[in-house]
């Protein structure tokens, strides 16, 4: 079986460990908290989130930063469970943009 894009333990070519930590942005703190809250409410499980990350497009997986992968996998799982739809999310974003005047 070919390795999935997430299954990187032991792969060659990795560089030095960058030890510096970045302070989390507000949206990252929010994504983290929503993920935990959905877990606490029994809406989704850790292994479901991991499956969603494992099934996403491989190039996207490598290009996204950590919490972007979380948001993408939360969205996939919430849509899969018929809790949200992509259209609803798109529409909500369009509302924000018209209300706050940002493109």
């Amino acid at each position: 079986m070919a390795r999935g894009h997430h299954d990187i333990g032991g792969l060659p070519g990795a560089g030095a460990i960058e030890a510096a930590d970045h302070p989390l942005s507000d949206w990252e703190i929010l994504a983290d908290a929503i993920n935990q809250a959905l877990g606490a409410r029994g809406v989704k499980r850790t292994d479901e989130m991991r499956r969603a990350r494992e099934e996403m497009d491989s190039a996207a997986y490598r290009d996204m930063n950590y919490y972007e992968r979380w948001v993408a996998s939360m969205e996939a799982i919430l849509i899969e469970k018929n809790i949200l739809t992509k259209d609803e999310i798109d529409q909500k974003l369009a509302e924000f943009e018209s209300k706050w005047g940002e493109p």
Binding site: S25, W27, A31, V71, L78, L93, W100, E102
Partner: peptide, 25 residues
């Protein structure tokens, strides 16, 4: 959400509002 946020950063704000409106969390 601020306009300089990335695509997924913006989406989490939309998902938050929807999840609260629907009473999921």
């Amino acid at each position: 959400p601020k306009h300089e946020l990335s695509y997924y950063a913006k989406r989490i704000y939309a998902m938050r509002d929807l999840l609260i409106e629907k009473g999921v969390i």
